[in-house]
Design a binder for these strands. Structure first.
Lengths: 148, 148
DNA sequence: ATAAAACCTGTGAGCAACTCACAGGTCAAC
DNA sequence: GTTGACCTGTGAGTTGCTCACAGGTTTTAT
């Protein structure tokens, strides 16, 4: 398989295949005639594995470590479980941060309903933002809307 | 005010001040004696404005556009409102995506409870990931947990 | 007075995971 | 034999900083 073939087989951009090869996730052999990269079924398995792992939140260095462990006939699964718990915690944190941002945004938006636009006067740029209070809301029921 | 002074006054990293200056958000004058940058109250106002806008999700190019409008004595507020709605929609989308990721992760995690680790056999790298089903769950009540 | 510490300057690289562009080589079909 | 689709490696762009570097300036301490 050449670059485009394996890219099609895994439904990814050929440039991603090249990039993963550069990053050491894929190790194609070479056609001595033309120096083209030759991917085999094992490369395809690694590529598909990498894509699934990416969808599950693993980083490329992590995926490479997993792949390398498997290459050495060590089970990467314990490492996968360990890294995964950390990743899940990261995702939870990111969600909280984005929710906090959304909370800041929606509260700003409702406060802006009644505010005039105003023209810059040399002291103010845009009151909407400048007079926005960035101290977090303390009422728990309005902070997270009782979700999750 | 020199770099460190304005950085302290706005509670940001001095390198951020330098970066914003490079990006054209700040336009300090120069001390002819030593070529040091001189920030005034107006720069501080712009810097604080920029930080607040960042917290509200505005990008640096957007902030620069807002600042430039205000500089020209046009009210940037209508633009602020317009961009803001778009940003809010982006944040909502990011939250949904992260929630979908979390859903994939937690469902994978629970499925892994009962799976053995296994050793790579030349056909499998890590069954946890390879046998993970990436087709989205369709049951709405388990997809978003009825939140928000 | 002098030496060390703390600041200043501009510039370039690093982060993450691609994606795209470029310039040139190879190969299939017509 | 020419066109078009593919291949090659490399470098830059994305975002918002943060850090490093090498060298100049100012402040502080001795």
């Amino acid at each position: 398989m050449k670059v485009k073939d394996i890219a099609n087989a895994a439904a990814v951009n050929p440039d991603t295949v090249r990039f993963y090869t550069r990053e050491g996730l894929l190790n194609p052999s070479r056609n001595p005639d033309n120096n083209y990269q030759q991917f085999d079924a094992d490369d395809l398995r690694r590529l598909r594995f990498a894509r699934k792992a990416r969808q599950l939140g693993f980083s490329l260095p992590e995926i490479r470590a997993i792949l390398d462990q498997a290459e050495d006939h060590h089970s990467p699964c314990p490492m996968v479980r360990e890294v995964f718990e950390q990743r899940l915690a990261d995702v939870e944190r990111e969600i909280s941060e984005l929710k906090a941002l959304r909370q800041r945004m929606t509260s700003a938006l409702s406060a802006w309903q009644d505010m005039p636009d105003g023209t810059p006067d040399g002291h103010t740029i845009c009151r909407l933002i400048e007079h926005w209070d960035d101290t977090p809301t303390v009422n728990p029921s309005t902070v997270n809307g009782n979700e999750e």
